[in-house]
Amino acid sequence: MTAPAIRHLRHLALLGLLAGALAVGAPLQAEPSDHDLARQALEQGQVLPLRTVLDKVERDYQGQVLKIEFEHEDGRFIYEIRLLQHDGHLAKLEVDATSGEVLKVKRKRR
């Protein structure tokens, strides 16, 4: 094979590798993170501030917050809050982020 033909094959191989890398790279439009979704909803006045919800939950359910998730389910914004309660139970609460109403509580012994 001649030198120009080898260069041409190398260029084709590099273009193939580049095309493959682009095809398996990051998706064109990534889903917004929970953090971004929560910030946008708060800025638009669609949800209560987390601190407001936590004050109520900590007062009513007497415990230490271990984990918080923000979700958008069935057209509703939800704070999912996990607490370690003073009696040793773990409580998982689903709270309507718009009203602060506790929708569901699951408790289990640690």
Rank of each mutant, 00 (worst) to 15 (best):
53 V>F: 00
18 L>D: 03
37 L>Y: 00
47 V>E: 01
23 A>V: 08
39 R>P: 00
49 P>D: 12
33 S>Q: 02
58 E>T: 12
38 A>G: 01
71 E>M: 08
78 I>C: 10
18 L>V: 12
73 E>G: 10
58 E>I: 07
84 L>H: 11
25 G>H: 07
80 E>H: 07
84 L>C: 09
68 I>C: 08
73 E>W: 12
70 F>S: 11
20 G>T: 11
32 P>G: 02
54 L>M: 11
59 R>F: 04
13 A>D: 13
14 L>W: 13
28 L>V: 11
22 L>N: 03
40 Q>K: 02
33 S>C: 06
53 V>M: 01
18 L>K: 05
25 G>R: 05
18 L>Y: 04
16 G>L: 14
53 V>W: 01
55 D>Y: 01
11 H>P: 01
5 A>Q: 14
11 H>F: 15
28 L>K: 07
56 K>R: 14
79 Y>H: 13
49 P>T: 09
70 F>T: 09
81 I>F: 08
19 A>Y: 08
31 E>P: 05
71 E>D: 15
5 A>E: 14
70 F>Y: 15
51 R>W: 03
70 F>W: 07
30 A>L: 11
22 L>S: 05
49 P>G: 10
15 L>G: 10
70 F>K: 12
19 A>G: 12
55 D>C: 00
16 G>V: 10
61 Y>Q: 05
55 D>T: 05
49 P>C: 06
37 L>H: 00
60 D>N: 08
37 L>Q: 03
27 P>F: 04
26 A>M: 11
54 L>V: 06
63 G>K: 12
69 E>A: 13
18 L>A: 14
24 V>I: 15
32 P>E: 05
47 V>Q: 01
65 V>M: 09
54 L>C: 02
59 R>H: 13
30 A>D: 10
52 T>R: 07
30 A>S: 15
17 L>A: 14
73 E>A: 13
11 H>C: 11
73 E>N: 12
76 R>Y: 06
30 A>P: 14
25 G>C: 04
13 A>V: 15
76 R>D: 03
64 Q>R: 15
45 G>N: 07
40 Q>D: 05
29 Q>D: 11
25 G>K: 05
85 Q>S: 08
8 H>M: 14
59 R>M: 01
31 E>K: 10
37 L>D: 00
72 H>F: 15
31 E>F: 04
28 L>P: 06
8 H>Y: 08
49 P>W: 05
58 E>H: 03
6 I>P: 01
42 L>T: 02
29 Q>M: 10
8 H>A: 15
68 I>G: 07
65 V>Q: 06
54 L>W: 06
43 E>M: 01
5 A>S: 10
24 V>D: 04
61 Y>P: 01
54 L>D: 04
15 L>M: 12
36 D>W: 09
56 K>I: 04
34 D>H: 04
32 P>V: 08
61 Y>M: 04
24 V>P: 03
60 D>W: 03
47 V>D: 00
85 Q>R: 15
30 A>C: 08
25 G>M: 06
13 A>Y: 10
40 Q>H: 02
75 G>F: 13
47 V>T: 03
73 E>K: 15
28 L>T: 14
